[in-house]
Simulated scan of single mutants.
Amino acid sequence: MARRRYSKKNQLVRLIIGAIILVVAYFFYGEISLEPEMNYGSNQNDDGYYYYTYVSDNDYYDGANGLINEALKQELHEILNENITRTSYAEAKNFLANSDVSLDDDTKVYNVYDGVLAPRTWDSTSWHREHVWPNSRLGVDRVTESERSIASDLHNLRAVTPRVNSSRSDRFYSEGSGEADTTEDGGFYPGDDHKGDVARIIFYMAVMYDDLTLTNDLALLLDESDHYTPDGARMGQLSVLLKWHKEDPVDAFERNRNNVIYEYQQNRNPFIDKPEYVHLIWENMAIDDLTQPEEEVVNYQSSLFMLMIKEHVYDI
């Protein structure tokens, strides 16, 4: 019994010593922070909205801190275009072999819409280059292999199974469920596992390029008379894409793809890094609407504090 009392007392002493050391380091040296890091995240509330976080100084998005609506959209446009390195449509074959690589099998690419794993090396038959925002709706001519333009933007290109690519054609996106398929209203459903990815690519394009427009107008989306012209540079349906953005959250594949493309093209998809920006630009929300509740922050801080204490105590 005496031995047990000694053990408990010893643990309490260790806990107190650990807490004192942490507090001293925090206040005097600033080496330990009990605040949650203000960085990229994808936590959502019960309604699917992503919580807002500020970024640190000199971060890729530091100029966007505190901005909403058109001001945020314009700032992101400038950030994305500042140092972009254009790649050709031909070069995209090699780049996509790296950006779209499967996280489960690095000898394969992960095809959009159906999730098929195809041989990573380009052979022109296993997978094609899909324009998520269709080439015919970009307001430019059909892309050529040597072209370096909006039509060769790597963020908008995905590896795709040829059969599915033909079925999708240049249809706009529309609501559905289950696997990828055409829809009764003339659109295309990208599949449950791909709809969020598609939405975030479309949002990137709408911010990256000023001449592109998002709409819910089915009559305009069904009108093919002005394809490959500036008047036809529109895509949708916006309301559906906003819904998908919440229902299919950012995943590890998207994050890895974003990082790889950044190495080649020197710009990022902000809606993968900062998914809350979608709400601030297209859903007329304020930063306060997306602020994480205080009790959740407190719980996070408490958990982090106890974890740090435990890790330190066991090192004593």
Rank of each mutant, 00 (worst) to 15 (best):
V164P: 05
V164I: 13
N165S: 10
N165H: 12
N165A: 08
S167E: 07
R168Q: 01
R168V: 02
R168I: 03
R168Y: 01
S169Q: 09
S169R: 06
D170F: 09
D170E: 05
D170I: 03
R171G: 05
R171E: 05
F172T: 11
F172Y: 15
F172D: 10
Y173G: 09
S174Y: 14
E175G: 12
E175R: 13
G176Q: 02
G176A: 03
G176R: 00
G176H: 05
G178A: 11
E179A: 12
A180C: 12
A180G: 04
D181I: 00
T182L: 02
T182N: 06
T183C: 06
E184Q: 05
E184C: 02
D185F: 09
G186C: 02
G186Q: 05
G186D: 01
G186E: 02
G186R: 02
G187M: 06
G187F: 12
G187C: 04
F188L: 06
F188P: 13
F188Q: 04
Y189H: 11
Y189T: 10
P190L: 03
P190C: 01
P190V: 08
G191A: 03
G191D: 03
D192M: 09
D193I: 00
D193H: 11
D193N: 14
D193E: 06
D193L: 05
D193M: 09
H194S: 09
H194W: 06
K195F: 06
G196L: 14
D197H: 15
D197R: 14
D197K: 15
D197E: 14
D197T: 13
V198W: 10
V198T: 15
V198C: 09
A199C: 11
A199H: 11
R200A: 05
R200M: 06
R200S: 11
R200V: 13
I201G: 07
I201F: 12
I202Y: 14
F203E: 06
F203V: 04
Y204T: 02
Y204V: 04
M205D: 08
M205W: 13
M205V: 10
A206F: 12
A206P: 10
A206E: 15
V207N: 12
M208N: 13
M208S: 14
M208F: 15
Y209V: 14
D210P: 09
D211I: 01
D211M: 11
D211S: 13
D211A: 09
L212Y: 13
T213V: 15
L214F: 14
L214N: 10
T215N: 07
T215C: 05
T215E: 04
T215G: 10
T215A: 00
N216I: 04
D217W: 02
D217I: 04
D217C: 07
L218P: 11
L218C: 01
L218A: 00
A219K: 10
A219V: 12
L220Y: 04
L220M: 11
L220H: 11
L220I: 06
L221W: 03
L221Q: 05
L222V: 00
L222N: 15
L222W: 04
L222I: 00
D223V: 06
D223S: 13
D223H: 08
D223K: 12
D223E: 08
E224D: 10
S225Y: 03
S225G: 09
S225V: 14
D226M: 04
D226C: 01
H227Q: 13
Y228C: 00
P230N: 07
P230W: 08
P230T: 03
P230G: 06
D231L: 08
D231I: 02
G232A: 02
G232S: 07
G232L: 03
G232T: 03
A233T: 12
